[in-house]
């Protein structure tokens, strides 16, 4: 019988989810002024082509296990379609250049959905096949959302 304790900083690894081609950075001064130092700012980010409308402090729940991600990792988003404040919105369906903003998330939890079983049955066969289903879930916390 033995016991050990560990103390120290968590390992932080950052990676990019996708890349955008070089584009001219838009002038977002009205957004900057209206969002009061990025306090009231929202954005629509794209993760594997799915759109998520987020503000700072929101939790994103991905219905899968994010590849190569571990709890405590930081993600830098560079597929951002919309940046918005109470009065103004800037939208680019092809993605806003990454120099315009800083949006980051932390992988907070990797867990699963509750277990259930699916019974698959063929016609004219009395036997059913029981398939266990327990998909993964990844929780992300948006901890940085600001204009640069």
């Amino acid at each position: 019988m033995f016991a050990r304790t560990f103390q120290g900083a968590l390992s932080l690894s950052s990676r990019r989810l996708a890349s955008t081609s070089a584009k001219i950075v838009p002038d977002l001064v009205p957004l900057k002024l209206d969002s009061i130092g990025s306090q009231s700012l929202y954005s629509v980010i794209s993760i594997y082509n799915k759109k998520y409308l987020v503000t700072k402090g929101d939790k994103i729940i991905l219905p899968f296990k994010l590849k190569d991600a571990e709890v405590g990792d930081s993600l830098i988003f560079n597929q951002v379609l919309t940046l918005g404040s109470p009065q103004y919105t800037y939208h680019d369906a092809k993605g806003i250049p990454q120099e315009a903003y800083n949006i980051q998330a932390k992988v907070v939890e990797i867990t699963r959905e509750p277990y259930y079983e699916v019974i698959r049955k063929k016609q004219r066969c009395r036997r059913g096949k029981t398939i266990p289903v327990e998909p993964y879930q990844t929780h992300l916390m948006i901890n940085e959302l600001k204009l640069t």
């Binding site: 409308l53 503000t55 929101d58 729940i61 939890e109």
Partner: peptide, 27 residues
Amino acid sequence: NQFSQASGAELFKWNHKVLSTNESVRG
């Protein structure tokens, strides 16, 4: 590896993509 990355909460299927406690930006 799997259970050390969980939060200990009961497993739940969230049907919402984003959970937010903030007020709506646009009202």
